[in-house]
C-alpha cells in the first residue's frame, strides 16, 4: 500500500516538475542559441514579461492557446530585435543593453497590462497523448501534459541536432567561437547573430506566454518573478548543450517543488539554502570545464559577450 502511494507521489512529482521546468527550458534553449552565437542577452526577464502580457491578451481575445503562444513568441522576438539592433549593429554594450531591455520590458508590460489584471482565462482541458497517457504508473504524469511541454522537449532535440549536426548550426557556432574567422570565411556574422538573438527572444516569449496562459494562468505585473534570470543561469550550468539544458531546467524547476514536498511531510530545510545549490553547482561546473583548455573549447562559445565589427 505504502509503496503504491510512494509511486503515485513520485509520479505526481514528475508531472509537476515537467510543467514547472518547461518555461525555464524554453527560455534556456533560446538563450543557449543566442549565446552560442556569442551574444549574451540579460533582457530575458523583460522579454518574458512582454510576451506574457501579449500572450495573455491574445488568449483572452481568441481563446486559442496556439495563437497566444505564437503571439508571445512574436513579442519576444520583437523585443530581442530591438536589443539586437543596438547590441549588434550599433555596438552598444551587450550587458547594459540587455539590462535596459529588462527595465523597459518590466515597465512596458506592466503599463499595457493594466487592463488585463484580474481577468479570467477559461481553462482548456488537458487531453494528453491518447493511449500513452493511460499507461499505468507514470503514464499520466509523462503523457497528460500541455502540448507546450512536449514542444519544449522537441525544441531541445531539434536545437541539439541543429547545433551539432547541421551546416547552419556549424556556421552559428563559428560566429560565436571566432567572429573574425567566420567573417573571413564569408559568413554574415552580424546577420547570423541577429537571427540567433531573435530566435532567443522568440523562445523566451514562448516561455513567458506559457507562464501567463497555461501555467498559472493569469496576468499580473512582475509575474515572471525572476524566472528569466534563472534561465540565464541555465546555459553555463548546461555548458551550452541542449541536452543538459533539459536536465538543468527540470532540476531548477523541481528544486522548489521538492522543497515544498519535504516541508509538507515535515522535513525542514531552508528553502534559500536548497535553492542555492544549483547556482553553486553552476559555478563549480564553470570552474571545472574552464581549467581544461580542451573542455572549455568544446563547451563554451569563445567569443561570448564580445562585440564584433567587421573590418576591424
Amino acid at each position: 500500500m505504502n509503496e503504491i502511494n510512494n509511486l503515485a507521489l513520485l509520479s505526481t512529482l514528475i508531472a509537476a516538475t515537467l510543467s514547472a521546468g518547461t518555461p525555464l527550458l524554453l527560455a534556456g534553449l533560446g538563450l543557449l542559441v543566442n549565446e552560442r552565437a556569442g551574444v549574451v542577452n540579460l533582457g530575458a526577464e523583460g522579454m518574458m514579461l512582454l510576451a506574457a502580457v501579449a500572450g495573455f491578451a491574445l488568449a483572452l481575445a481568441t481563446g486559442s492557446d496556439v495563437l497566444a503562444l505564437a503571439g508571445g513568441a512574436l513579442a519576444g522576438a520583437l523585443a530581442a530585435l530591438l536589443f539586437g539592433v543596438f547590441a549588434i549593429y550599433l555596438n552598444t554594450n551587450q550587458y547594459a543593453t540587455g539590462l535596459a531591455l529588462s527595465l523597459l520590458g518590466g515597465g512596458l508590460s506592466a503599463f499595457v497590462g493594466i487592463d488585463y489584471v484580474s481577468r479570467n482565462l477559461p481553462r482548456l482541458p488537458l487531453t494528453g497523448i491518447p493511449w500513452l497517457s493511460d499507461l499505468p504508473w507514470f503514464g499520466p504524469a509523462l503523457f497528460r501534459q500541455h502540448w507546450a511541454v512536449y514542444l519544449a522537449l522537441l525544441l531541445a532535440l531539434l536545437i541539439g541536432v541543429f547545433l551539432q549536426r547541421s551546416r547552419a548550426g556549424l556556421a552559428l557556432r563559428a560566429v560565436g567561437e571566432s567572429p573574425e574567422s567566420a567573417h573571413a570565411l564569408g559568413l554574415p556574422v552580424r546577420r547570423v547573430r541577429l537571427a540567433a538573438v531573435c530566435f532567443g527572444g522568440a523562445c523566451c516569449g514562448l516561455a513567458g506566454a506559457y507562464l501567463s496562459v497555461i501555467y498559472t494562468p493569469m496576468w499580473v505585473e512582475g509575474m515572471v518573478a525572476g524566472r528569466g534570470w534563472i534561465a540565464l543561469a541555465l546555459t553555463p550550468f548546461a555548458t551550452w548543450r541542449a541536452s543538459r539544458v533539459v536536465i538543468g531546467a527540470y532540476l531548477f524547476g523541481g528544486v522548489t517543488l521538492l522543497q515544498f514536498h519535504l516541508q509538507s511531510i515535515g522535513v525542514e530545510i531552508s528553502s534559500a539554502l536548497l535553492s542555492m545549490l544549483p547556482y553553486l553547482a553552476t559555478i563549480l561546473v564553470l570552474a571545472l570545464i574552464s581549467r581544461n583548455p580542451v573542455w572549455i573549447q568544446r563547451n563554451m562559445p569563445a567569443s561570448l559577450g564580445r562585440p564584433f565589427t567587421p573590418g576591424q
Binding site: F86, A100, L104, G107
Partner: peptide
C-alpha cells in the same frame, strides 16, 4: 501608474545608448 516610470527609464536608457552609438 508606477509602470510608466519603468517605461521612461527604459526609453531613456535606449535613447542614451543610441545617441552614444
Amino acid at each position: 501608474p508606477n509602470a510608466l516610470s519603468g517605461v521612461f527609464q527604459g526609453v531613456l536608457l535606449f535613447s542614451l545608448l543610441a545617441c552614444d552609438a
